[in-house]
Amino acid sequence: MARMRSAKQKLKDAINSPEWRSHLDEITQGGLENVGPLFSFLLLGPQTMHRAAVALGQITARLAETQPEAAKNIIRRLMWHLNEESGNIGWGIPNAFAEILAASAPLAKDFHRILVSYVIDLGHDDNFCDHDILRRSCYWGIGRLAQARPELCLGARKWLLKGLEDQDVICRGMAAWALSQLPPDLMDAPALRRLADAGLEEQCELFDGNIVYEKSVSQIARDALEKLAA
């Protein structure tokens, strides 16, 4: 037991170190043994959560090449955590889901529609995430996948545009950020302009691949408009 705690602490220290990306290959080589601890790190602070999600993405992508069923089981575990019947809130789960799909083309092909479904609100018989705070991560996850595989997120455009009017103000900013990761011709300047001009100073937590930073909802929309104008 002490050995397991020591290994988990070593993994946590590696994730939180300034040179954490230099440890990713070693973490990935740990395979399934590191999956459980990394899942537990998703419940920690935003930066640790995001970095753990990246590491889970790398491990699962490698497993998809050598043990595809084990990789799919990790995806199924994520889906279960986002299911209301699981009794879990699902903190960090959309982030890990997105990092896995960004890292693995085969898994992205099979599961990208599931990730997008968490922001699709049909009013009934849907997979919509109705927990406002968790839904912020769902929008972020779509944006992260769009960075790596934009062609798989084209169908999300309609729902990202709808997200610009989400009941949760921060969700609006996250939807705008996700939309800005799509090709410019898929953005909607008038909708983004309305959000940019709304003066919404609520802060969104974003991750640049290394650190977590904050940006206001309206500033995200303004940044998206600048990309359109470039």
Rank of each mutant, 00 (worst) to 15 (best):
E99W: 06
I74L: 04
A108V: 06
L44F: 12
Q29F: 05
L24T: 03
I27H: 05
T60W: 03
T60Y: 05
P68C: 11
H50C: 09
F39L: 11
K12S: 15
I27R: 04
D13K: 13
H23K: 07
S17L: 14
E19R: 12
N95K: 00
N16Q: 14
R113M: 15
L32C: 04
F41T: 09
N16M: 14
I114A: 13
M79K: 13
R62K: 10
A61F: 08
Q58H: 01
P106D: 07
N88T: 14
R76T: 01
N73V: 04
W80N: 15
R62T: 02
L43R: 10
A105T: 00
N83D: 15
R62I: 02
H81D: 15
I59G: 02
R113T: 14
Q67V: 08
H50W: 00
I93M: 12
A14K: 12
L115K: 12
A103E: 05
T28Y: 02
S104E: 05
L101A: 06
N73T: 08
H50R: 03
Q58L: 05
G31N: 03
R77I: 08
L24V: 04
G92R: 04
E84I: 14
A103P: 08
N34E: 10
R21P: 04
G30P: 07
E85L: 13
F111W: 15
L44K: 13
E69D: 11
E33G: 13
P68R: 07
I74N: 00
K12H: 14
I100K: 08
A103H: 04
L56V: 12
H81T: 11
L42N: 03
M79E: 15
A52V: 08
R51C: 07
V35R: 03
A108G: 13
Q58N: 08
S104P: 09
Q29L: 11
G30M: 00
G87N: 11
A52P: 00
H23F: 02
T66I: 15
A64C: 00
A98K: 07
I89G: 12
I74F: 00
S22I: 06
F39Q: 00
N95W: 02
A103S: 00
A96T: 02
G30D: 11
A102D: 10
A61Y: 00
A61E: 06
S17W: 12
D25G: 07
A55K: 06
S22D: 06
G30T: 06
H81L: 13
T48F: 07
R21N: 03
I59F: 04
E85Y: 14
Q58D: 06
I27D: 07
